[in-house]
Amino acid sequence: MSFEPKILGIACNWCTYTGADLAGTTRLQYPQNLRVVRVMCSSRINPSFIFRAFQLGADGVLIGGCHPGDCHYNTGNLYARRRLAVTKKILEFSGLEPGRFRVEWISASEGNKFSEVVTEFTAQIKSLGPQTKFKISQ
C-alpha cells in the first residue's frame, strides 16, 4: 500500500479557510491528506501546537494565514511571521526535515493557490516518507 501522509493544516478563519472554502465551491481537486483546523488568526497558533502535532503523528504541518498587511486584526500575521520563522529554525536545528513545515499566505480569493499549495506540499511529504523522529512510538 502506498504511503498516505497525514498533514495538519491550520488555517486562519478570514483568509486561508475562506480560500479553502472557495476551492471547494469552485470544485477544485486537491489531495485529501490535509486535515484543516480553523483558528481565528495565524497568530493564535501556539508553536507547541506544531511540536505536538508532529509528536502525535503528523507527517507535515501547513499553516495558512492572510497576506502580510491584510490581516483581519491588522497586525496578527506580522507577529505570526516572526514567531513561525523561529519555529521553523528550531525544528530544523533539532534535526527534523525542514520540508515538513510550511507557512503560506493564502487570501480568501485564492482558491487556486490553496489547491496548488496543498497538492505540492502533499507530494513533497510523500517523497519525504513517514515522519518518525518526533512521533511518540507506541
Binding site: P68, G69, R81, R82, A85, K88, V103
Partner: peptide, 12 residues
C-alpha cells in the same frame, strides 16, 4: 512581541 512591516517573507 514586536514586528516590522517590512520583515521579509524569506525568513519563513
Amino acid at each position: 512581541v514586536n514586528f516590522r512591516v517590512d520583515d521579509s517573507d524569506k525568513i519563513l
